[in-house]
């Protein structure tokens, strides 16, 4: 933790909290859709719930950022009294671990489209393990289960990883990120 600058810690926390607030809005959108279309018809929306990890990890580019960001975003749901409550904390932890593994596999040196998409997918896997154990997904019919999982993987990759990449790249263009790992890399490349 000592290698972190104060402003890196704060920006991680603020972005994670902002993601948490966005998750809340996304949940209200998700509830009616899931009732009508079931787990298969609603899980294309899944990816947004894991976006905090790739987003923050891509900006800070340090070990632990992905895990902490997702847990903090989940904590926001607890503090605001969302319907996921304490279980959001547990599932956030599962997703964060998954996302973190993707970056750890590359020794925290590669932060590109590939690792971001991978982290979204690994977060989906973490979430699946949790859902299987806690939410009784094992009781779904096999077709429903397989479709739900493949949808979550694709959604984690696109709405989690890829969208995070697009958003951060747009943020870099605004110049607000110049003081962070991602912005510095961009400046170095422009200078070269």
């Amino acid at each position: 933790m000592n290698s972190w600058k104060m402003k890196e810690i704060i920006v991680m926390m603020m972005l994670a909290v902002a993601c948490g607030v966005l998750y809340l809005g996304w949940s209200t959108l998700w509830l009616p859709i899931s009732a009508i279309f079931g787990p298969v018809g609603s899980n294309w929306m899944f990816g947004i719930w894991v976006i905090a990890s790739p987003l923050v990890a891509y900006i800070i580019q340090k070990p632990g950022a992905a895990l902490i960001a997702e847990v903090v975003a989940a904590a926001v749901e607890l503090f605001t009294g969302s319907h996921f409550g304490l279980s959001a904390l547990l599932i956030g932890f599962a997703q964060g671990i998954g996302a973190e593994i993707a970056f750890a596999l590359f020794g925290y040196r590669k932060f590109n489209t590939l690792t971001l998409i991978l982290s979204g997918m690994f977060a989906a896997i973490g979430s699946m393990v949790y859902s299987l154990v806690v939410n009784g997904f094992a009781y779904y019919t096999t077709t429903t289960l397989l479709l739900t999982f493949s949808l979550q993987l694709v959604s984690g990759a696109l709405l989690g990883g890829l969208l995070a990449k697009i958003i951060v790249d747009a943020l870099v263009k605004t110049g607000t990120l110049n003081g962070y790992a991602i912005g510095r890399k961009r400046q170095k490349r422009d200078a070269a």
Binding site: K7, I10, M14, L163
Partner: peptide, 21 residues
């Protein structure tokens, strides 16, 4: 989501810099 999150994130990054300082 993109249209809402982009200004939200930009603002929060500027604010975090101020808070850290």
């Amino acid at each position: 989501f993109f249209a809402i999150s982009l200004p939200l994130f930009t603002n929060s990054i500027i604010r975090s810099e101020q808070i850290a300082i």
